[in-house]
Design a binder for these strands. Sequence first.
DNA 1: CATGAATGAGGGTTCATTCAT
DNA 2: CATGAATGAACCCTCATTCAT
Lengths: 224, 224, 224, 224
Amino acid sequence: MTTSARPEPQDPNEAARAVRTEWRSRQLLTAAARLMERNGFHGVSMQALADEAAVSVGLIYRYFGNKDELLLAVIVNVLEAFAGQVPAAVEAAGDDPVEQVAAAFRAHCEVIDEHRHAAVLTYRESGSLSTEGRNKIKDMEIATSDPLRSAIRDGVAGGRFVDVDVELVTHDFLLMAHGWALKHWHLERTLQFHDYVAKQTALMLGALLAPEHRDDYRHLVAPT
Amino acid sequence: MTTSARPEPQDPNEAARAVRTEWRSRQLLTAAARLMERNGFHGVSMQALADEAAVSVGLIYRYFGNKDELLLAVIVNVLEAFAGQVPAAVEAAGDDPVEQVAAAFRAHCEVIDEHRHAAVLTYRESGSLSTEGRNKIKDMEIATSDPLRSAIRDGVAGGRFVDVDVELVTHDFLLMAHGWALKHWHLERTLQFHDYVAKQTALMLGALLAPEHRDDYRHLVAPT
Amino acid sequence: MTTSARPEPQDPNEAARAVRTEWRSRQLLTAAARLMERNGFHGVSMQALADEAAVSVGLIYRYFGNKDELLLAVIVNVLEAFAGQVPAAVEAAGDDPVEQVAAAFRAHCEVIDEHRHAAVLTYRESGSLSTEGRNKIKDMEIATSDPLRSAIRDGVAGGRFVDVDVELVTHDFLLMAHGWALKHWHLERTLQFHDYVAKQTALMLGALLAPEHRDDYRHLVAPT
Amino acid sequence: MTTSARPEPQDPNEAARAVRTEWRSRQLLTAAARLMERNGFHGVSMQALADEAAVSVGLIYRYFGNKDELLLAVIVNVLEAFAGQVPAAVEAAGDDPVEQVAAAFRAHCEVIDEHRHAAVLTYRESGSLSTEGRNKIKDMEIATSDPLRSAIRDGVAGGRFVDVDVELVTHDFLLMAHGWALKHWHLERTLQFHDYVAKQTALMLGALLAPEHRDDYRHLVAPT
DNA sequence: CATGAATGAGGGTTCATTCAT
DNA sequence: CATGAATGAACCCTCATTCAT
């Protein structure tokens, strides 16, 4: 991530190893997320995890110091996805705060949909973390929600939005994004992912947009 | 739910016993909820629970068959509170679906605030339940959300609300209600319970109310 | 040990329980010592210990917090036997430092013979202890050897003994006492316990006694 | 012990390899002794040993079949040092059994001082050995103590020493020699190695020498 | 009713050992 | 020769559950 001096691993062996290491790590992370969503952190034994990932128990400990660190890694993995995708989406949305809000929300939802198993753990299992881990998560969560928060604030300041509690509305958007994962088993019976995003966007913008701007965002509000 | 067949305990001893039994049961339930919110279901040992409730381990098993049943009882306890308070609140709100929605949401929030420890367990620990228990919970949850759902449907049908996806909006309201428990540690820094309810109500009604009715509900939408 | 107010346990149940607790504790301690002498601290699993003592693994943890504490308890148990028997033996030996030395050495040997399994652990396994435990042991060992040390010092000061390094000779006596346990498998082929004590006493007094006093202690030196 | 059949390595490469092999082996042995003294046999993992010796885990298994064999090799290494140095020292001491005893004891102490880390393992970890290994050790220990035993026996037979139990006195001398390693942390605070040897020699000869010969060995007995 | 000593299956974790590279 | 990733048995410990008192 931060290496600059070492241009490329010269030794092909080393490169191959790094690739395999990365692959294993990801494999374990996904297996863990999948299992933990179903049975909860405490409901998943290391043996079960090893079986699911088709490796031995001992190997898991070469990649993650212990079970707690594994959970932390699963969660951090999601949060890093937010950090990677959300700011990019907002930037691509241009200067209009309304478009930015919609883009940010959509990006959040997409990350959650991609990491659906792991995303619920953020809500459910953060209590199983060490204090240290919990703090790390909290910091990342706040940073993660920042683009969305800023866009909302800009929208209010610029008069596009009515005068709402920015913090609360941010919280609402995040809740809705996570809602897709939390109640996925219930929602997917009637909704496709894109419907969910579109409808929720329309709903929230319906609440937020100042009356005089409402007509400007037909393309966002329409499909409800 | 409440036994009706058994007419009345004749023996005053039996009555006293029933009272004590009821009291013990409630004491254990609250102790369990308090502990489990902090440490999670698996983080609370029966011994710790016995200590917290100042009884012996063995006694717990006279009231609840096993640990799973105890968790189930804790959760059912909350859901029963919904069943008790929400319909009453809706009824008291009169015939206007908008008022009904506001009342139902407020009632949900109040139950959650009163049972804040137990409410999070609904989200976090339902995975620790047996399939049977999980199904029971799901059924109760759906029943619980029914008054709210009906009111929303009525609002849409009567033209008070814009044409939204009733199921989704129900889901949103419930999510917001639970949000008060889920992110309580974060929200309470800036918001009182009543502000939370009022602002969320205003926001959602802002989104739902048809333009021609918006002015009729100033008292609900204003305090944003 | 320190109770003074509570004269006797009134409740016979409580008394009975205390007796059983004491008995269990002692049973576990002996089993642990026996096994650990043979296989070493790390060579004995808690399961093996449970089997030997005919109890369940879990029960051991009601009496000793963990395996380390168990080892500590085994060792402390021996050292307490020294503290109980050695000073008494010295006192019973009268005022003559030579008699005191002989009595102290004999007492040491007797404790070691009685706790032969555990005595070797003092030497072999003190490294497996926590720093805290190790310090406790060291303190007790020093205190334990004090009567012997004092008697030797008195003997030198009073001219009964030649001018030796008191600390070193104390160390030698202790080493000889422990030697009975350390090389018991080898020694017992040719020596009874009493011969061992008598011969070692004679040898050491032969080295220590000043020539002019040698004849006074025929009864101690003779049987070599 | 030392191969004699294989005449000489013809190939210079093979010679170089043999040297490196010997060097590696010795390096591993000392690393193992150092680590095991501190943490005990079970407290040292093969990984830790590999790290300490700056080789890979796998390589250790090219030199020693398994961990037990490694421990055995460490211990045998000390015992071979005894076999190498003690007889030589006795021979160099001339024909006088008293001088021989003193020389043998000194040689024992020197070996132990040189191999202090490994010497304690002889006492502490012999229980971790296989029966086979344990027997090998016992045989070597007996053989090792033979020069000392013979000298003592000669001293008694020749009237230089009083009539003592030869086996027991041998045992005492060995115990004293090992005492330097066993309680080194305690003794070194007040004694140098040479003081220890001299004082212990003086003490034991004081006990052993027949009265009519005592004046002949002032140079050995004096420095007490 | 109430207690808490006792059980033992199951969990997380370590580490000696192997083997493909 | 040398490496270190991979294995899995075995360890220590916890805790839901039972039952004699």
